[in-house]
Design a protein around this nucleic acid. Sequence first.
DNA 1: AGCTGATCATTG
DNA 2: CAATGATCAGCT
Length: 226
Amino acid sequence: MLNSGKSPKNEAELLTRAQNLAGMSLGEIAASINVQVPKDLKREKGWIGLLLEQVLGASAGSRPEPDFPHLGIELKSLPINYQGKPLETTFVCVAPLTGLVGAQWQTSHIRNKISRVLWVPVISERTIPIAERIVGTAFIWSPSQEEEHLLALDWQELTDMIVLGDVENIHGKHGQVLQLRPKAANSQAKTQAFNRHGQPFMTLPRGFYLKTSFTQGLLNKYLRID
DNA sequence: AGCTGATCATTG
DNA sequence: CAATGATCAGCT
């Protein structure tokens, strides 16, 4: 069956298990581990990701470590349309707004986070009921030299702006492959940052997101779609 | 139709 | 509040 809930021993086992989900509907997967399927994701935006974590045996919780700590692999679900195109940007992690002086890409949280990722595409157009959405072929990725270079460039640009106190001037269009956008419960949420004069102030928490053109490239490269 | 600011649930 | 999981939804 699916070996639901058991932690995979190694990378090969994890990949095999994930690829065995290809062609299955979210309803079938949910039923196999006795999980109820919500009518929509308006109030459970992370439901698909959590479902995949459970069926693949990822460690639960919101701890700041990979989903599969012993394998050093992060799990990411990727919503795509029927043509295999990403429907959303991919959230990576919260962006630190303080303590960045002297920060290096090589030792950044985001680099560590995406050093090795198990991507699980899900045909997830909004017109398809949640239970009927189909899982695609999963693949494991690590950034190529070129990809890492692009990520590092964007990270440096965004981080420089934050360090200079310009975080509030950062918009979604900054960066070629990486974006800095709000990541909060609502627009009232606040976290500390520094302004252009080096004085602390409270601002909206931000997160790093991979643009759809970037994840599209991964799909093309690993799945030969298109 | 794509973008980007806004938002929801849960856990530690 | 921060970090986990992301998608929603209005505007251009």
